[in-house]
Amino acid sequence: MKLTHEQAIELHGFNNLTKSLSFNMYDICFTRTKEEREAYLHYIDEQYSAERLTTILKNVSDIIGAHVLNIASQDFEPAGASVTLLVSEAPVELTTEEVFEESPGPLPESVVMQLDKSHITVHTYPEFHPDEGISTFRADIDVSTCGEISPLKALHYLIRSFETDVMTIDYRVRGFTRDKDGNKLFIDHEISSIQNYIPDDLVELFDMIDVNVYQENIFHTKCKLREFDLNNYLFGYTKDTLTPDEHIEITERIKLEMDEIFYGKNIV
């Protein structure tokens, strides 16, 4: 049994369903030398420092209508950062229809919804191939909420906040709440695909695959950029400085890296 904006179901107590969004993004760069790799990692550390990540998570908190109770952040040596926000409920100001609508969420503005004890975290993982060449930056963001609002409403903003070549997105609803007659409700909104929470202009940029287990309220979407411009993957120089053979080799290596991340397996 589900709650929708067409069904004014009165709950017995608080809506204590747990909704968890895991958003993983990957940025790929070709670095020919140790110096280029170190320069790229330095750029990533500045671009996605604990301070900037904290700002992003605060904006996520605003979008889902939460009050920030506590912030823990840390920049790591030689690279990487982590931020965790503990958030609590805020007053409800959106309509019931806006709560349950399967559509992209807003960018940061004055949006307030109902939550209980919840958290938002981000961890970053810069890494590189042992033979040089490929450097990869990964950011993992988890948004866990209790109450009416779905963390999927923050997905639109998160995608626009990171330069991403490949994304994997997981969403799951856990637990149950009860209506006034004691009947269990295992999900409180309709959802057919995570893609419906991504604006059309962003959907057009990616090839996407869904793997959903509807009976378990588990939803998974993988995304890979469609257009490929080698200049976007070179750090400190452009493709016109490459020989034809270098152009082909580097393109193949970057596309292989993207495909292996997208499909989740080594390709030989």
Results as ranks from 00 to 15, higher is better:
225 L>W: 01
205 L>V: 09
206 F>D: 01
130 P>A: 11
191 I>D: 05
147 G>S: 02
170 D>N: 15
172 R>L: 13
192 S>G: 09
131 D>W: 10
118 S>T: 08
170 D>R: 12
143 V>I: 13
189 H>F: 10
242 L>D: 06
221 T>W: 00
235 F>H: 13
242 L>M: 14
221 T>Q: 03
214 Y>T: 13
167 M>V: 01
169 I>F: 08
167 M>N: 00
214 Y>I: 09
167 M>H: 00
137 F>C: 04
199 P>G: 06
121 T>F: 00
226 R>Y: 02
201 D>S: 06
128 F>D: 11
189 H>S: 13
129 H>C: 14
218 I>N: 11
244 P>R: 07
153 K>R: 12
240 D>N: 13
200 D>E: 02
177 T>K: 03
222 K>P: 00
150 S>W: 03
145 T>A: 06
225 L>R: 04
229 D>K: 10
143 V>E: 00
188 D>F: 03
189 H>R: 15
244 P>G: 12
199 P>F: 06
140 D>C: 09
217 N>G: 04
183 N>F: 14
245 D>Y: 13
150 S>F: 05
235 F>S: 06
134 I>M: 14
135 S>Q: 04
205 L>Y: 01
137 F>Q: 03
120 I>N: 00
170 D>Y: 10
187 I>W: 12
245 D>K: 15
206 F>H: 00
197 Y>I: 11
172 R>C: 08
239 K>G: 01
223 C>A: 15
215 Q>M: 03
185 L>E: 05
202 L>P: 00
205 L>Q: 07
193 S>F: 12
231 N>P: 00
133 G>F: 06
146 C>Q: 13
140 D>L: 10
189 H>L: 06
187 I>V: 10
194 I>A: 02
234 L>I: 06
180 K>R: 13
142 D>V: 12
181 D>G: 10
140 D>G: 05
196 N>Q: 14
128 F>S: 15
147 G>V: 02
